[in-house]
């Protein structure tokens, strides 16, 4: 439906070429950083699909964990090839999301937020409690990494390309969904659920669909993460990590497809550059979060617009 846009195309192309060349110019620790950043981009973009329906869940990161645990258990204990367990990880998260949607979507808004948190936390406690097969608090270690045609994906550079390809494909799919009539219907469910219902939209079905698709992709992200790390623990998927996803999405802005990506990239780079502040970094996040809510409620994506308005009101009130 969109017209071909030359500038957009050039920007995308440059970005892509840059991303392909980048790892060769980075130090080891920054290669790691890039791998996790790209995975986190998939986490926030899939989360945004969920928020399109207007429901904010706190179970997204736990769904990432569901994918991670599925992939780890299958590849380590059942000997299934990692190439198969990564998509299966997404599938298992989607199926679980489908099962959970029946109780969860009997709640909306605040109740859904808290309900999704409670269910997620209960799942996480199950990983801690059932040492067999989940390994308890220490989780599962020595998770195998993928291998293909003699390329060892333990190395950051091949793994970087693997992640880049998988995430790009996933983003393309998520983008297509959002720009399709399904995306339009999800939006409609968000803005005016009663109006959407009154023209025949089954809001429950569309909320479930968004939840399942979001879980599918975050499950894949979870598998990508732990096959690089080599271990999976319940603490990787705690409410703290969920809060970071919320911050990225909100600071970046959740009204556009690229807003959450900007949020994740900008804040992660900032975080990395403040590395020597160690455990005091969360305060920076806290301040940023409050500033973004108070002064640019639509996120970084709207920062230029926000600045203009701010100057305008400052002028008119003086």
């Amino acid at each position: 439906m969109n017209k071909f846009n030359l500038t957009q195309f050039v920007v995308m192309l440059t970005l892509f070429i840059g991303l392909i060349l980048l790892p060769h110019y980075l130090r080891y620790q920054h290669q790691d950083f890039m791998i996790f950043l790209i995975i986190n981009v998939l986490v926030v973009v899939s989360y945004r699909l969920m928020t399109l329906t207007g429901e904010w869940s706190l179970i997204h990161i736990v769904m990432m964990g569901v994918g991670a645990y599925t992939s780890a258990l299958m590849s380590k204990h059942m000997g299934v090839s990692v190439w198969l367990t990564i998509p299966l990880a997404g599938l298992s998260a989607a199926v679980l999301a489908g099962l959970l949607s029946t109780p969860l979507f009997r709640m909306t808004q605040f109740y859904f937020l808290i309900g999704s948190f409670a269910v997620g936390e209960a799942i996480r406690l199950a990983w801690i409690f059932f040492i067999k097969p989940f390994g308890g608090s220490s989780g599962i270690s020595s998770v195998p990494s993928p291998e293909l045609l003699g390329i060892d994906f333990m190395d950051p550079i091949p793994y970087y390309y693997l992640v880049l390809i998988v995430v790009s494909l996933c983003l393309w799919v998520l983008y297509r969904i959002e720009k399709s009539r399904i995306g339009l219907t999800l939006n409609a469910v968000h803005w005016k659920a009663p109006l959407a219902q009154s023209v025949g939209v089954n809001t429950w079905k569309y909320r479930t669909l968004a939840f399942m698709v979001a879980s599918l992709f975050v499950g894949i992200a979870g598998a990508l993460k732990i096959h690089y790390l080599g271990n999976v623990t319940p603490h990787q998927f705690g409410v703290g990590s969920m809060v970071f996803v919320l911050i990225w999405v909100i600071v970046g802005g959740y009204n556009t497809f690229y807003g959450p990506i900007i949020g994740a990239v900008v804040l992660s780079v900032l975080d990395e550059s403040l590395r020597n502040l160690n455990e005091y970094r969360p305060a920076i996040y806290g301040v940023l979060l409050i500033i973004s809510i108070m002064f640019m409620p639509k996120g970084l994506e709207h920062i230029s617009q926000g600045l203009k308005d701010w100057i305008k009101t400052a002028k008119s009130s003086s």
Partner: peptide, 29 residues
């Protein structure tokens, strides 16, 4: 933090998460 966001419950909630981080770091300090 809460009064300016009275019409925006999500905003108030996010602000409280911001304060949560700050208070934790103050405790560390």
């Amino acid at each position: 933090l809460f009064r300016p966001k009275r019409e925006d419950p999500l905003g108030g909630l996010i602000n409280s998460i911001g304060i949560l981080f700050i208070l934790q770091v103050v405790a560390l300090l």
